[in-house]
Design a protein around this nucleic acid. Structure first.
Lengths: 243, 243
DNA sequence: AAGATGTAAGTAAGTGTTTACTAACTTTTC
DNA sequence: GAAAAGTTAGTAAACACTTACTTACATCTT
């Protein structure tokens, strides 16, 4: 067994904690929160279960610690904000597309995020409202500015941002999570998506539309009242708790 | 207790089976496969655990039975195939968009599909390769035909189909699963997405491109070899099994 | 340099509960 | 009266988490 150090690889607190987090991340991403057993985590980390619980008082605390430390957003966001100054749409959108399609966040993190959203919403809602919403806010602000500039066609910027990201995320979902074959190179996929989107958002020259009805207008009918309030069923019971 | 029938609501086999499936579906969708306990299912169905196991020999069999019976695809697909004959792009794409945005499949089924893809891939891969792939095949064939007709710009039809569906699915993910607010009516969302996509896929008049590099071409660079083969780690061990 | 000592790192062996699943029995219905 | 529908009361294993203990090692003292 002992290959690195002679007999007992005793580690300082911080290092051991990190080792546990690494092991737990892999297992939680693979099998979810309730699908992962604390014994497996301890085994993969090469320690006893008792030690695990000395570092993280409950399984949930461990899961929360993992969620708190990972986020793909900041790195992406700083780059986007830098590119936003140049007002080069193609460059910016292509950067985002290439990043996402080339597995950022990686499959493990995607699975972790999905699992947490499904299994532990109160933990992941924080994550989403902090990181994801912030990204969409910055991104849609850029789009709004470019619409005002006259570089992009007018429509709701947030919807446009979500639409663009959706094309990318869906590709990752289909390939990483649902295991459908992807018969193209990442570069080509990114380029096609950017092309469809930017072409779709391009201002039309005052031409006659080639289709029957006039869909040259962009904002779509805005007279609908947004009264969407689906009753969430949201089970509020919880079994065990800790201080 | 007995409110429907006087004392014992004894049901014929098929009906009881259906009642169990209904209860199990709700719980599996809410808490996943390993998060749901057979005792809870029996309780919600109003029967003993023993009876549950008389109808479904294992918990996994029950889960598989649920997956086998639901699919949002056939209904959507027949409608799409009917509309495809008319070659009215706006009508067809708008139909798909409205359907998805207006919660078909509903939140419960979306959660169920995601849970099964994450927790029981061998069960859901069947689902995806049968239903989802079939939908994309039909849908992308329509797009391919419209490209040949000259009605849509040339690009890979499968990528285009996935891009379009991605905009819609992402909206459902953000609102249903990740609980981000959606500040628009379903109708406006659907319309905006359709507009972006169809405008993006519209053939450009032989004009000069307004951006620096020439992106008037559609298929994107096709010289990349598709050598994507990420090593899946795919834990092959399984604990309990049944004949 | 050798020992004493405090403390952090680590573990073996549980605890009570929960879990998927079963055996053996009772009740209803045709 | 017999088959089908249903239950009670289990079982062995698995589960998150604890208790009570041992071991390694840096630092201080002599």
């Amino acid at each position: 067994m002992g290959s690195l150090t002679s007999t007992h690889p005793r580690l300082p607190r911080a290092q051991r904690k990190a080792a546990i987090l690494t092991a737990a991340t892999r297992l939680f991403a693979a099998k979810g929160f309730s699908g992962t057993k604390t014994r497996e985590i301890a085994e993969l980390a090469g320690i006893s279960e008792a030690l695990l619980f000395k570092h993280f008082p409950t399984k949930k605390d461990l899961f929360a610690a993992i969620l708190a430390q990972y986020s793909p957003v900041p790195r992406l966001l700083t780059e986007v904000q830098a590119l936003a100054h140049e007002k080069n749409d193609e460059q910016l959108f292509r950067y985002i597309a290439t990043t996402i399609v080339s597995k950022v966040p990686d499959t493990q993190l995607m699975r972790l995020i999905l699992f947490s959203a499904l299994e532990e919403p109160e933990l992941s809602d924080l994550f989403f409202h902090q990181h994801v919403s912030r990204f969409y806010k910055v991104f849609s602000q850029y789009i709004a500015r470019r619409i005002k500039d006259g570089a992009l066609a007018s429509c709701d910027p947030l919807l446009a941002a979500r639409a663009f990201m959706g094309m990318l995320i869906n590709h990752r979902l289909l390939s990483d999570i649902f295991h459908l074959p992807v018969p193209h190179s990442p570069e080509m996929i990114a380029e096609t998506i950017v092309r469809i989107f930017l072409h779709g958002m391009r201002v039309t020259a005052p031409n006659s539309a080639s289709t029957a009805s006039g869909i040259t207008r962009l904002g779509a009918s805005e007279s609908y009242s947004s009264k969407a309030s689906p009753s969430r069923h949201h089970s509020p019971r919880r079994k065990r708790q800790r201080s």
